[in-house]
């Protein structure tokens, strides 16, 4: 693989993720509407909504500091970086060594801290409430995520996503009990980190329950559009990370143009299933009371740690 094809693959994948991510959002919304016997909105609704927001005049609170205006761009940059690290279509991308799984968790943490700070910037009661709740969820979700990734790292002897995915993808089929624990923990973290039911409800504006929405209440127009876009990329990155860790079959190596169409088809099928699954989960579950969220997430954390110990106990 030459460097140029590698970089071409890298740019292509990043662009692909950034452009396709809102479609996944639309797909999840559509599946949920079907499951709830509603008439489904267009698949492209997230794009229309963002286009509309970009055209509007931004309204910013009087006392907003520069941090408030910078944050949407930081979130977008962080998520773009995450999209470049996770092996979505191909492994062994030239970017991949720049950040391993620990740094990936760090990127998400950086985004979380900035959005929480921006929420507190205006000094409204809702902003502080959202920031506090987001950090409460984050402090358990982040280590749980890290432990999940450590389990995979111990199995493959590396924290490089490329090596992990290659090890897990190119092996005879065997059930790692530790990976099963990790997968359950990862699913729970995915729900919490992406503000989905049962931890948060992406469609609510009820003050008792909202977390993520409370943080971005003061944003409008292009800033809001960037944040919504970043949220869509984040969901996409989490889902593809889960796929890469637990269902890695069909992924291409960077520079291997022949394997690319197959990789795209495989990814599309897997994502469609995962999106439908997410919608199903969200329709089946009820939102948890806020103080049950730490219990939910500590269960995820303990499962992930158990999975890691399991790896050492049964060597698998």
């Amino acid at each position: 693989m030459t460097t140029t094809t590698g970089i071409a693959f890298q740019l292509l994948q990043s662009l692909f993720v950034v452009l396709i991510a809102p479609l996944l959002m639309g797909w999840v919304n559509r599946c949920r509407a079907w499951l709830q016997n509603r008439r489904a909105p267009s698949l492209l609704l997230p794009y229309y909504a963002m286009a509309k927001l970009f055209h509007k005049d931004a309204v910013i609170a009087r006392d907003a500091s520069p941090l408030f205006r910078l944050t949407p761009y930081v979130l977008f940059g962080c998520m773009w970086l995450a999209a470049g690290i996770v092996p979505v279509l191909a492994t062994a991308l030239p970017f991949a060594p720049a950040a391993d799984v620990i740094a990936l968790v760090g990127v998400f943490a950086l985004a979380r801290v900035f959005s929480a700070l921006a929420a507190m910037d205006i000094g409204t009661s809702f902003g502080g409430l959202g920031a506090r709740r987001e950090m409460l969820i984050g402090f358990l979700a982040e280590p749980a995520m890290l432990m999940t990734l450590f389990t995979a790292a111990f199995i493959s002897g590396s924290t490089q996503l490329t090596t992990i995915v290659n090890t897990l993808a190119h092996r005879a089929f065997e059930v790692h009990p530790s990976l099963l624990f990790a997968a359950v923990a990862f699913l729970m973290v995915l729900l919490a980190e992406n503000a989905r039911i049962p931890i948060d409800n992406p469609t609510t504006h009820l003050e008792l329950t909202m977390v993520h929405e409370a943080m971005i209440l003061e944003y409008s127009a292009r800033h809001l559009a960037l944040i919504e876009w970043a949220v869509a990329i984040k969901l996409f990155a989490y889902m593809t990370l889960g796929i890469a860790l637990f269902l890695p079959w069909g992924i291409a190596a960077a520079g291997d143009w022949a394997a690319l169409p197959l990789a795209v088809v495989a990814l599309g099928v897997k994502l469609a299933l995962a999106g439908a699954g997410l919608a199903l989960l969200e329709s089946l579950l009820a939102k948890l009371r806020l103080f049950l969220a730490p219990e939910f997430l500590s269960a995820a954390f303990l499962l992930a740690v158990l999975g890691m110990l399991m790896h050492f106990l049964v060597r698998g």
């Binding site: 055209h55 005049d57 931004a58 309204v59 907003a64 761009y73 962080c78 773009w80 209440l217």
Partner: peptide, 29 residues
């Protein structure tokens, strides 16, 4: 990467859309 994306995005938003900003009292629902 992060700085480059921030610059490109900020530039793109400026380039393709108007950069109008109004200030108002905080909304807070």
């Amino acid at each position: 990467v992060i700085v480059a994306v921030i610059c490109i995005t900020a530039f793109g938003v400026r380039r393709f859309y108007h950069g109008r900003v109004r200030t108002a009292p905080p909304w807070d629902c």
